Amino acid sequence: MKKITDTLSIQVFDSRLMKQYFGERPFAVFDIETTGLSPVYCKVILSGILLIDGTTAQVIQYFADQPDDEKILLEATLQTLSQVDYIITYNGRHFDIPFVEKRAKKHGLVFHPTYNLDLYQVVSSHSPLRQVLPSLKQKSLEQFCGLSDGRDDEISGGESVALYERYMAVHTFDLERRILLHNHDDVIQLYRLLPIIAKTDFHRAMYKQGFLAGDYWIQKTVLHGHDLHVTGLQLTSPIDFISFPTDAKPYTLIMNRASRSFELQIPGQSEVGALYLDALAILGEETIREIEKYPSVVNGYLITQDHGLINYMEINCFLKAFFETICLPKR
């Protein structure tokens, strides 16, 4: 296996939306190249990881230049990804991450769950761009955003597969360079695409995709009847814990150490077409100050839904405040 590292200057993406959900958490932009679409029969032959440190970007690539390199490639990839809190991909939830998980399992490796901000899903499901663009492939989005000049490679993922087959037969530098360049440009261009979130309903996307809150990964949020139902994972020091509703803590919270899962149910009420919950009773006077600036937080109550419209931003901010300040017994 070859490890290739490229360090370059980059214009840092500074976004209020991203900071609202991710703060200063370390992240990686991630992309893989494979010998085909099926993780049952095909291999990972190249992984690209973009890390940001100040105004400097580092692209780390692990390349299988020998037939039996996949296991050590995956080991190196997973080790690097374990150093960040979340990863950014383009269609990674449907392809890159499941592919790596299945190939890692085949080699007896464990891919610990890592939050994945899938920019393709954000744009595809939470913006009008699907109606505007003929294709939502990454290169099409780059062209729409005026970023085509930042890409040097001229091949597709499918062409990369054919080039790799030729490379394994002759091992020429030119073939290797073209394969690496495609992956290298993919991760850099994906980072440059992040400003597109301003054209999306990002709060709705986070409600649907989940987000990080303190030491917890909120995976699914649903309004079930009047109540708010939340499930997810404990990221560090998982515990077994059960809390049933009381006057001081009017919610049900169940945590499972073995599965690292948690389940939160907050009772709500309804009135004149609106659903709401008692945010003040749950967060307390000090913590609720963090969200009472939002229009759907009124007199200590969080309006979760108003005449059929869900207040995604306020619900997300409420849950972040809850999980970032919750105090639970140590294991």
Rank of each mutant, 00 (worst) to 15 (best):
Y164H: 03
Y164R: 04
E165I: 13
M168C: 02
V170N: 03
H171V: 06
H171P: 06
T172E: 00
L175F: 01
R177V: 10
I179K: 06
L180F: 07
L180I: 12
L180M: 14
L180E: 05
L180C: 14
L181D: 06
H182G: 03
H182N: 11
D186V: 04
V187R: 02
V187A: 08
V187N: 03
Q189L: 15
R192H: 12
L193E: 01
L193G: 04
L194W: 08
A198M: 14
K199Y: 14
T200N: 00
F202R: 05
F202E: 03
H203S: 12
Y207C: 03
Q209V: 07
Q209S: 12
G210R: 05
A213E: 01
D215T: 07
I218G: 04
I218K: 02
K220N: 15
K220S: 15
T221C: 11
G225K: 10
G225A: 05
D227Y: 04
H229M: 13
V230Q: 06
T231Y: 11
G232F: 06
L233R: 11
Q234C: 10
Q234F: 01
Q234E: 11
Q234V: 04
L235C: 07
T236G: 05
T236P: 09
S237A: 15
P238K: 01
D240P: 01
I242P: 03
I242A: 14
S243H: 15
P245M: 01
T246I: 05
T246N: 05
D247R: 12
K249M: 10
T252C: 12
M255K: 13
R257M: 09
A258Y: 11
A258G: 05
S259W: 00
R260Y: 06
S261N: 15
F262Q: 00
F262M: 04
E263S: 11
L264V: 09
L264R: 00
G268L: 07
G268W: 07
Q269R: 14
E271L: 10
G273W: 09
G273R: 03
A274K: 13
A274C: 12
L275I: 05
L275T: 04
Y276C: 01
L277D: 02
L277K: 02
A279C: 01
I282P: 00
I282G: 00
L283D: 06
L283R: 00
E286L: 12
I288T: 07
I288H: 07
I288L: 08
I288P: 05
R289P: 04
E290S: 13
I291Y: 02
I291T: 01
E292Q: 13
E292F: 10
Y294A: 13
P295F: 05
P295G: 00
S296D: 12
S296V: 02
S296N: 13
V298W: 13
V298M: 13
G300V: 07
G300A: 06
L302K: 05
L302E: 05
I303E: 00
T304F: 03
T304G: 07
L309D: 07
I310K: 04
I310N: 01
N311W: 06
N311H: 13
N311S: 08
